[in-house]
Every structure is written in structure tokens, then in C-alpha cells.
């Protein structure tokens, strides 16, 4: 009995590990909140009024006036957004694919791949909306400005993704074409392209989903598509019509997402993808902006 109590006395509860001091994080966070909130002129009354105002608008949005916006040709506008996204994706895909071959470190020499990589990075740094702001004075208002903005911007991401998948290939087939006396182009055509095409084409589809959202937004500044319709209905304070436009856009976005996701799964069935980084890219693109 005595033995047992002696052994118990020697066992001590392990000390909790030393942790980072919480206030070192909490104080800067608090300062950041106070700083940002004071800058935004958020008074208590505005904060308390906001939910009420939002609720008033929401109540006026029901029921949505589908008939009215249909007569104004909003369905055509929604499809215009889809067309812009489709042609923009094709422009981006066609330009980015050859560039990606010149940017991959296993198939291209350094003097050509570093400028092309910088080009991809630079394009990805500029949001579509800013591209459209710059392009609209040149092309004029309308769908073509949006298409060019989306096409240009897609080159950046599509080029980066394609380049990364080219870097991941198995070198065997490329060596085999070389051993048969094939030139660089033959190696790319028969050694690389068949390996990367499934994943690259699924990236194209993925980018198309993103571009549908992006082109809807581009319409807000006059670059064609459904955004202009939403803006004009909201500025007339015609809320039933605005909610109809919004619901139509959501329906098209969700439908295209679902179909495209199914096709993508079919294309790369069994292929390994880095799920987390793809999610991050997905979110980046979903918001039309990139890190």
C-alpha cells in the first residue's frame, strides 16, 4: 500500500506546453478592427439601420417579375454572358496552350520560359474588371470588350495551369520520340500533348465556369452581358425585376457549374489532382481575383 502511494507521488501531471501569448495576437487584431471601422464611418445607428434597410429591399424583391424582364430581353442578356465566357475561354485556351509549352522547365530553355512566366504572372495580377476598364475606351462598349478582357485574363491562369501539368509529365514518351529522330515539335506533339490534354481540357472547362461569373460582373461596367441589366433595374429601383434578373443569373451559373463539373469528372476520372491548391485556385477565380 505504501509502495503504491510512493509511486503515485512521483508521477506528476505534465505541464501544459508553453504557448504563444494570446494578447500578442488579440491586441493587433483589436487595433485593426478599430482602425478599419473608424475609417469606414460606421456609426452605431447606420449599423443598426442596415439590416432593416436590407430587409425592406428584400421584401420588395418578392415576387420576382420574370415576365417583365423577359420582355426586355433579359434572357438574351444572360446568354450573351455565356457567349462572352465561352469565346473568352477559347481565346485564352488557344493562346495559352502554345505559351505553356514554352514556359515549362522540362521542355523549354530558360531564356524563353522566364519572360513567359513573368507574362503569366503579370496578367494574373490584373483583375478582369480593370482590364475591361482599360479596354472599353479602345473597343467601345459591348460584348467584344468583355470577351477580350476575359480572354486576356484567362491566358494567365490557363497558361500557369497548363505549364504546371506539362512539368508533371512522364519524360519517357518525349525521350522515345527523340530516340526515333523526332524534332522538338514532334516530341511535344506525340510525347507531351497526349499526356496533358485530358487535364488541360478539364482546366479549360473549369475556367469557363469561372468566366461565366466574371462576364456577368463585367456587364456592370458596360462590357456586355447580364450585369448591365441588373444595374439598370437596381438604379430604377425596380426590385421585382432586379430579383428576376438575379435569379436567372444564379440559375444559369449553377446549371453550367453542375454540367461542367460532371464533364470534368468524366474527363479526368481516376486522375490525381492536388485537391487543396485546386480549391484555392477555384476560390480565387470564383471571385475574379487571384493571389
Amino acid at each position: 500500500m505504501q509502495n503504491l502511494s510512493e509511486t503515485q507521488a512521483t508521477v506528476e501531471r505534465p505541464l501544459p506546453p508553453k504557448t504563444f501569448h494570446l494578447w500578442l495576437i488579440a491586441v493587433p487584431l483589436l487595433v485593426a478592427i478599430v482602425w478599419s471601422v473608424t475609417g469606414l464611418n460606421i456609426t452605431l445607428s447606420r449599423l443598426l439601420d442596415a439590416p432593416g434597410d436590407a430587409w425592406t429591399i428584400l421584401r420588395q424583391m418578392i415576387p420576382p417579375a420574370f415576365g417583365e424582364v423577359y420582355e426586355r430581353g433579359a434572357v438574351g442578356k444572360v446568354f450573351e454572358s455565356v457567349y462572352i465566357a465561352w469565346i473568352g475561354t477559347i481565346i485564352g485556351a488557344l493562346i495559352s496552350l502554345p505559351l505553356a509549352f514554352l514556359a515549362a522547365h522540362n521542355v523549354a530553355p530558360i531564356w524563353i520560359r522566364s519572360p513567359i512566366r513573368q507574362l503569366f504572372n503579370a496578367i494574373r495580377a490584373v483583375p478582369e474588371l480593370i482590364l475591361a476598364v482599360v479596354l472599353i475606351p479602345v473597343t467601345g462598349l459591348g460584348a467584344w470588350a468583355g470577351t477580350l478582357a476575359i480572354g486576356l485574363h484567362s491566358i494567365g491562369t490557363l497558361g500557369k495551369w497548363a505549364c504546371e501539368s506539362i512539368e508533371d509529365i512522364d519524360d519517357g514518351p518525349v525521350e522515345a520520340t527523340k530516340a526515333c529522330g523526332g524534332k522538338w515539335v514532334n516530341g511535344m506533339r506525340w510525347g507531351v500533348l497526349p499526356q496533358v490534354m485530358p487535364i488541360v481540357s478539364s482546366y479549360w472547362l473549369f475556367r469557363f465556369e469561372i468566366n461565366v461569373r466574371a462576364s456577368a460582373v463585367l456587364g456592370m461596367i458596360g462590357a456586355g452581358g447580364v450585369g448591365s441589366e441588373l444595374v439598370s433595374q437596381l438604379s430604377f429601383r425596380n426590385f421585382p425585376a432586379a430579383s428576376a434578373v438575379l435569379l436567372m443569373t444564379m440559375a444559369v451559373v449553377l446549371t453550367i457549374d453542375t454540367i461542367s463539373a460532371a464533364v470534368r469528372r468524366r474527363i479526368i476520372k481516376g486522375a490525381e489532382i492536388d485537391e487543396e491548391s485546386k480549391n484555392l485556385e477555384a476560390i480565387a477565380d470564383l471571385t475574379g481575383i487571384r493571389a
Binding site: 429591399i57 474588371l129 460582373v217 456592370m220 450585369g227 432586379a242
Partner: peptide
């Protein structure tokens, strides 16, 4: 899309 939210809230 995020800018649709922005426009909606600007109106509201």
C-alpha cells in the same frame, strides 16, 4: 458574384 452583392447592398 461578389460585385453583384456590392451593387445590391449599395442600393439597399
Amino acid at each position: 458574384p461578389d460585385l453583384f452583392w456590392a451593387k445590391l447592398l449599395v442600393t439597399a
